[in-house]
Amino acid sequence: MNTSSAYPNSRDTRDTTDNRILVWDLPVRLFHWLMAACFAGAFLTAESEHWRLVHVTLGYTVGGLVLFRLVWGLVGTRYARFASFIGGPSSVWRYLRGVARAHPDRHVGHNPAGAIVIVAMLTLACALTLTGWTAYNDVGGEWLNELHEGIANVMLALVGVHIAGVIASSWLHRENLIGAMVSGRKHGQPGEGVKSAWSSVAALMLVAVLTFWWWQWHAAPAAPVSGHDAVSVRQTDRYDSDD
């Protein structure tokens, strides 16, 4: 069942509804921005051996965040649940027809087209984590490394589609959707908002992420000595033995 409220005329609704309601709880918002930062960081460090630990750590973090989002999508607040925004093909087609007419239905939570992108990104993020693990542990051969890179490129393209969709929806609905993912608040009818931001869950998630990063940093093996440093060490040892 889709519980996300939709209005047939988004601009009229905006004109008559000045209430700012809480739509996105804090765990959803924290997940969104951590996911964006971790994917961007992992993508930028993918080709550097020097930053390999950072790349791996961020990649594993993405996997952990996706696992959390899957659970929160079942037990979280109203608009965090998958049941509130994942609909059938007819709802997607109806929304896209509205977009083509520059007059789409407004949804308090995710719109049906955005839901497809979200599900696709979560799926690709899972595939990225699995193939990244195989690449890091030399399991499966070179073809899995190439598959990992290919999935990352598809993910990047999908992120671009997501950003374009957010910008287009913000313009069509005359509402700052990026700002809404920061504050958690959007325009809506009284009684449609969620009652709690669940800050405690967000705090636990942040502590878990930071703890994992700390553990990765301290559990990492020592960096290998470079050729120049190795020569310096041998020379120092020789001088010490001469003395």
Rank of each mutant, 00 (worst) to 15 (best):
M1Y: 14
M1C: 01
N2E: 05
N2K: 13
T3W: 00
S4Y: 10
N9Q: 06
D15R: 15
I21G: 12
L26E: 07
P27V: 07
W33R: 11
L34P: 01
A36T: 06
A37T: 12
C38Y: 07
F43K: 02
F43E: 04
E49V: 11
W51H: 06
R52C: 01
R52G: 01
L53I: 07
H55P: 08
T57D: 12
L58F: 02
T61L: 09
T61D: 03
G63Q: 10
G64S: 02
L65Y: 09
L65T: 03
V66Q: 00
L70M: 07
W72A: 05
G73M: 03
G73D: 04
G76L: 06
T77D: 14
R78A: 14
A80Q: 04
R81N: 11
I86S: 00
G88K: 02
P89N: 10
S91Y: 00
V92L: 11
R97A: 06
G98K: 02
R101Y: 05
A102W: 09
N111D: 12
V119S: 09
A120N: 03
M121T: 04
M121H: 02
T123C: 08
A127Y: 08
A127Q: 05
A127D: 06
A127N: 02
T131F: 06
T134M: 15
T134D: 13
V139F: 04
V139I: 12
G140V: 09
G140N: 08
G141C: 08
E142K: 03
W143G: 03
L144T: 06
L144M: 09
E146G: 12
L147M: 02
H148F: 05
H148I: 03
E149P: 04
A152I: 10
A152W: 08
M155H: 08
L156E: 11
A157Y: 15
A157N: 10
V159K: 05
V159M: 11
G160L: 04
G160I: 10
G160M: 09
I163S: 02
I163C: 05
A164E: 08
A168R: 01
S170N: 10
L172N: 00
H173E: 15
R174W: 09
V182G: 10
G184H: 00
H187G: 08
H187V: 12
Q189A: 15
Q189R: 15
Q189I: 10
G191N: 13
G191C: 05
K195Q: 11
S196W: 11
A197H: 14
S199F: 13
V207N: 07
V207G: 04
V209I: 13
L210W: 01
W217H: 10
W217I: 05
A219R: 12
A219F: 13
P221Q: 00
P221G: 03
V225K: 15
G227H: 01
G227V: 08
G227Q: 01
H228A: 15
D229H: 11
R234D: 14
T236K: 15
D242E: 15
